[in-house]
């Protein structure tokens, strides 16, 4: 889903309360599931008052919110420069995909958090503010807005945001959840290379690293894969990802070692054996490379795509050996 948030925020007032009331009647006020509303075990007020503040200009809540989480993560960025990159004049807003892309360009890894209060609390507890997408309107008349959560107060049932031109916008948790729900609880944090989220989901972390790598940020991804392999030593994907990131750095010996570790975990993983063969080939160990590739080919039997790739590896080995 792509949204184009950025329209200006108006002060809350009687009209907004009335509007919310009408909305409740018209939409039947879809309820927030209990696991979303739950602050988490032992939640206490958490706040990051030191988070920098960049008041938004015109409709530019996207660049302002992104600047906030990047600066909090120690990135030296320039708001005007960022605005030029993520703000689309034609739609008076920023696309989610642009925010994600620019987070990567700034040397940070975007990681989408779970859509629940306890995830906000956990990330704030780890010192990371969370960029969220809100719909301040209704589903059929959206008013998209990006803001940054910098505090969650479970005792007073309040959320503290850097929002629009307000340094400390305090919103009742229930109201916040309703605006957040309409974006599908969309929110992300900017992770430093090799940093793990507070409550990482292994699959989502791997997918984020893989996307980081595919978009050309190989060094940052390499550090992330190291963290992943340390955190999930029994995961094929984590070890395979680390091995591939070594390979992409042209460190054939490190790659070879890492592929052998994957194969210790799962000797039948044809993909890892194919890549091991390639890392041996790069070291001019042709006989060993051919052995591994042939074994990989046998393991891949029945998967024609994989068979073709391994056949190409074998061809390359044969060509090099001549």
């Amino acid at each position: 889903m792509n949204a184009a948030p950025g329209r200006p925020l108006r002060q809350p007032g009687a009209s907004r309360v009335l509007a919310l009331f009408l909305v409740c009647i018209l939409t039947g006020c879809a309820s927030i599931p209990p696991e979303v509303r739950d602050y988490g075990a032992g939640a206490v007020p958490v706040a990051l008052p030191g988070t920098p503040f960049y008041p938004q200009q015109r409709f530019q809540c996207g660049p302002a919110a992104l600047m906030t989480i990047l600066a909090a993560s120690g990135v030296q960025a320039d708001l005007d420069d960022l605005t030029g990159r993520v703000y689309l004049q034609g739609i008076e807003g920023s696309l989610q995909a642009e925010l994600i892309a620019q987070t990567r360009a700034a040397g940070r890894m975007p990681y989408r958090i779970d859509g629940r209060l306890s995830a906000l609390v956990a990330e704030l507890g780890a010192g990371r503010p969370v960029l969220v997408l809100q719909n301040l309107g209704v589903a059929w008349w959206p008013r998209w807005h990006y803001a940054v959560v910098v505090g969650v107060d479970s005792e007073r049932d309040e959320i503290v945001l850097r929002s629009g031109t307000e340094r400390r916008r305090i919103t009742a948790t229930r109201v916040f959840l309703n605006t957040w729900r309409r974006s599908g609880y969309w929110g992300f944090v900017a992770l430093k290379p090799g940093e793990l989220p507070a409550n990482p989901d292994d699959g989502r972390y791997f997918a984020s690293l893989s996307a980081l790598e595919e978009t050309g940020h190989r060094d940052a991804a390499w550090r992330g894969w190291q963290a992943a392999a340390a955190r999930w030593p029994a995961s094929r994907v984590a070890l395979f990802g680390l091995a591939n990131s070594e390979f992409l750095r042209d460190d054939w010996r490190a790659a070879e070692r890492a592929y052998r570790q994957v194969l210790e975990l799962d000797p039948a993983l044809a993909m890892a054996r194919n890549n091991l063969a390639l890392s041996l080939l790069r070291q001019d160990r042709h006989a060993a490379a051919r052995r591994e590739a042939q074994q990989a080919l046998a393991l891949a039997a029945g998967d024609s795509t994989l068979e073709n790739e391994i056949a190409a590896t074998l061809a390359e080995i044969d060509a090099a050996a001549q």
Binding site: A207, R236, A312
Partner: peptide, 21 residues
């Protein structure tokens, strides 16, 4: 162009992620 990171036949990590999914 980035659908698959490939340096001379290296099978990318995404292939395994999709396979497991």
């Amino acid at each position: 162009g980035f659908a698959q990171v490939s340096t001379a036949g290296m099978i990318g990590t995404r292939a395994l992620i999709e396979h497991e999914a």
